[in-house]
Design a protein around this nucleic acid. Structure first.
Lengths: 141, 141
DNA sequence: TATTGTTATACTCTATAACTATA
DNA sequence: TATAGTTATAGAGTATAACAATA
């Protein structure tokens, strides 16, 4: 079987299972990635944040609207540069982040079952290699 | 970084790159998986085929409609059991399959760059482990 | 003019529920 | 009644293009 096919199938299964785990904690994959990125560091612009999550700016706007509607983030214009929006977690957003983090950590433990440290390290290295192989040359445009 | 997150990110990058490679060959991931399944073996029912591809029957109908509209497959009722649809590749479907297969093989070579046989085998084993870990217990309902 | 973000729109993939036709 | 598949509908995620506001 082509290795790409196996990665794809595994990823599909993982994504579905992870999505379900996040849904049970009241989230989804994109919202988790966005909350995680917001907690990990401070972004100068929404576009930077979008790039970190791997989506377009307009798509991020769409998700941020949802997060704002649910009271998880607040957006305000930067007084120094009113084109820029500042995105911040609310208290409820923090709580949601913690819930989703727990779900993610629990999922990770489940994922690691039967793999020792060396296995995981080797897996990481192989994944990084695959990632590099598709990111490099062949992604023109 | 959680291993799940890394798999997810790698998978996203791979899926996008693979989708692009398939699009350049005139296909998409679901159509490729369906054509591949049709060539790999004969399925008794569409539902079996859907399960092999990892989608619901209604979703498969949707894709088969598209494939039929583009002249890649033909569907006819099984005379022995008129509830059952038989799905067959047309000549054009065969040609599309070959084009997509070439694209998939080319993609796979690109993916394997910098990995030797042992690396690939280890990767396969780790992926199988991850797949099993999410398929087993934690997928109730 | 260039940059930041939003709006409008649409596409793809997916699913569930109700339905048709066969058995 | 049960099974195979379709239709109708919807929702999530994504993108592009046109736009408004700001610099």
């Amino acid at each position: 079987m082509p290795i790409g096919l196996q990665v794809q199938r595994t990823a599909k299964a993982l994504n579905r299972a992870f999505d379900q785990a996040l849904a049970e904690a009241g989230g989804s994959l994109p919202t988790w990635l966005i909350l995680l990125s917001l907690k990990t560091r401070r972004w100068e612009t929404q576009r930077e944040l979008a790039a970190a999550v791997g989506i377009e700016g307009a798509t991020l706007t769409h998700h941020l609207e949802g997060l704002e509607r649910h009271g998880l983030v607040e957006r305000s214009r930067d007084p120094d540069n009113r084109r820029v929006m500042r995105v911040e977690l609310t208290g409820e957003g923090e709580a949601a982040f913690l819930r989703l983090r727990d779900a993610a950590l629990k999922f990770d433990r489940r994922l690691r079952a039967g793999l020792d440290e060396d296995d995981v390290d080797a897996l990481r290295a192989a994944l990084a290699r695959l990632h590099a192989n598709v990111s490099e040359a062949g992604a023109p445009r």
